[in-house]
Each structure stands twice: as structure tokens, then as C-alpha cells.
């Protein structure tokens, strides 16, 4: 088992390196100079043009922007590994601090959405599989198709319209309290709920057709026991995969959901940084997302081995 984990870990390293290289390239392949952006209007009109050029050159030297790209990359990566993601051009703060300040809000949202999609998605999937080909089944399938077809921002606005504007049940925007978490979590979790429901249903139906389930039925076990103790356990492997993939979706989806609900989270930090061309922040957020996504998938791979001993030895 330890060997299996180690192997998966080693395999993930080149992907992380390539991803970080891509993220790094963003900053350095973009036309335009970060120093000009940093000096911005503040430096405008101060001193003679020659002095300004000299100052810009001085800053470039200080920041190491005149070094070869390869050296800059290694240095950036080295700092990133130690938790230093550089300085924001616009907010004049450490990127790490900006991210850490907003991380709890996003984790809260993503966690609530994940919990919702697992609990609701699996329940709906099991119900649909048990009541196969009934109107209930059709309703669940339609609901889950909506999850991948309804854009989160449209769904969010619809929710705000119904529950905040018309019914006045919950606040439309902001973060920090439970009633402000309900709508965003619902919106962010819908896509995952649909996917998990669909997959649970398909996976369960496949398992239910296998011989050992027939055996269990043959020896007179209660259908509920068969479902819980025999079928659901083996149906779990594909569900765990999609849960792992959800981590990435949730982080990417939070960009939109946080924008609509005006939540101070990582997603909103990223979108504002993109709009303001604050590249170190963009770099930092994307690197964080990429790494957490890969780690989540690593955990999923490891849990396969735990759920299914056959995979471990293969």
C-alpha cells in the first residue's frame, strides 16, 4: 500500500511542475512590464524621465527581472514551495496573505457545497436506481441533467430573485453568516449533486445486475441489507472518483458564485486580479487551485486502493 501511494505521488510531480511552469509563463509571456504597472500613476511626473527610467531599471534589478527566465522560474518556484508567492502589484501586500485572508470563506463555501452534493446526490441516485424507470427516476434524471446544463450564474440569479427579492428569506449577498451561505452553497453544489446522482444511479444499477447480488437475494436477505451492505459498497469506486474531480470544479466554480453573491473569497480575489492585471495574485491563486486539485485526485487514487484491493495489486 505504501508503495502504491508513493508511486502515485511521484507520478503527480511532473504534472505539478508543468502546471507551475505554465502559470509562471503567464506572467512572463504577457507583453507589458510589471514594473510600469507597479510604478503606475504614483511615479508619473516625479523627477525627470531619465530618473524614472533609472528607477524602473533599479526596481527590475531588485526584483531580479533582468535575470534569465530559467533562473527566475527556479527562484519563483523555490519561494512558492516555502509559501512565498510574491507581492501583489496593486494591493501592495504579500500574495500569500491575500490568499490566506480569503481562504476560510472559500473553504466554507466549497465544503458546504461538497457536503450537499454528496449527501443529496447519493440519496437521489439510490432512490432513482431503486425506483428504476418510474416517474421518480425520470424526475431525478431531469434534475441531474439540469445540474450540467444550468449555468451557475443564471441559477444563482434565479435563486436570488426567488428567495431574496421575492420571498425575502435570506440575504442576497455577502458572507460571514449561515443564512448567507445557504444560497451560494446550493448553487455551487447543484452541478455536483446532479453528476453524483447520475453516477450513483448508473453504478448501482450495474452492480445490482451482478451474480453476487443474485446470490444475496437467493439466500433471502432483506433488499435494504443487500443495498446497504453489498451493492452500495461496490458502487462506491466511481462515486469517489467524481467526488475527487468535484474539488477542482468547486474551486473553479467559486469564481463565479463568489462574484454573484459578492463573497470575499479566493474566486473573487482571482477575478479581480485578472481584471486589474495583477499577475502575481493570478499566479498564486491558480497555483493553489492546481495543487489542491492534484492533491485531491491523489487522495482519490489512494482511496481506490483502500476501497478495492484489486487495484492495489494491479
Amino acid at each position: 500500500m505504501a508503495k502504491f501511494i508513493a508511486q502515485r505521488f511521484v507520478e503527480a510531480i511532473p504534472v505539478v511542475l508543468l502546471a507551475s511552469l505554465l502559470v509562471f509563463a503567464i506572467l512572463h509571456l504577457i507583453p507589458g512590464d510589471p514594473v510600469d504597472a507597479m510604478m503606475g500613476a504614483a511615479a508619473f511626473g516625479v523627477g525627470t524621465p531619465e530618473q524614472r527610467i533609472a528607477l524602473a531599471e533599479q526596481i527590475r534589478d531588485d526584483l531580479g527581472l533582468n535575470d534569465p527566465l530559467a533562473i527566475q522560474y527556479v527562484r519563483w518556484l523555490g519561494n512558492a514551495v516555502r509559501g512565498d508567492l510574491g507581492q501583489s502589484y496593486i494591493q501592495h501586500q504579500a500574495v500569500t496573505k491575500l490568499i490566506l485572508d480569503r481562504l476560510p470563506s472559500t473553504l466554507e463555501l466549497a465544503g458546504a457545497a461538497m457536503l450537499l452534493s454528496i449527501v443529496l446526490g447519493m440519496s437521489l441516485g439510490v432512490i432513482a436506481a431503486v425506483k428504476r424507470s418510474s416517474p421518480i427516476d425520470a424526475a431525478v434524471m431531469l434534475f441531474s441533467l439540469g445540474g450540467v446544463s444550468i449555468p451557475s450564474f443564471a441559477f444563482a440569479i434565479l435563486m436570488i430573485l426567488i428567495f431574496s427579492v421575492t420571498l425575502g428569506l435570506v440575504p442576497a449577498t455577502g458572507s460571514g453568516s449561515f443564512d448567507r451561505l445557504i444560497l451560494p452553497a446550493l448553487v455551487l453544489g447543484y452541478e455536483g449533486t446532479g453528476l453524483i446522482a447520475r453516477l450513483t444511479r448508473a453504478s448501482l444499477l450495474e452492480v445490482m445486475g451482478l451474480e453476487y447480488i443474485r446470490t444475496a437475494r437467493g439466500k433471502g436477505l432483506h433488499p435494504r441489507t443487500i443495498l446497504r451492505r453489498h451493492a452500495l459498497r461496490n458502487a462506491l469506486v466511481p462515486i469517489v472518483t467524481i467526488v475527487g474531480l468535484q474539488v477542482g470544479r468547486l474551486l473553479a466554480g467559486s469564481v463565479i458564485v463568489e462574484t454573484v453573491f459578492a463573497r470575499q473569497g479566493i474566486g473573487q480575489l482571482a477575478i479581480n486580479a485578472i481584471l486589474a492585471k495583477d499577475y502575481p495574485v493570478v499566479q498564486g491563486v491558480i497555483l493553489l487551485t492546481a495543487v489542491s486539485y492534484l492533491v485531491a485526485n491523489l487522495l482519490v487514487d489512494v482511496s481506490y486502493g483502500y476501497l478495492n484491493p484489486k487495484i492495489r495489486s494491479a
Binding site: 503567464i26 477575478i271 487551485t289 495543487v291
Partner: peptide
């Protein structure tokens, strides 16, 4: 495989940034 690290709309965001 590198795309794997950029789930959902994230890669599009990166590219639009550039």
C-alpha cells in the same frame, strides 16, 4: 495532462488573462 490541473473554467480564465 497539464490541463488536468486547471479544472472547469480555470484554464479559460488563465488564457483570457494572457
Amino acid at each position: 495532462d497539464v490541463k488536468l490541473a486547471f479544472p472547469g473554467i480555470l484554464l479559460a480564465l488563465v488564457i483570457v488573462t494572457v
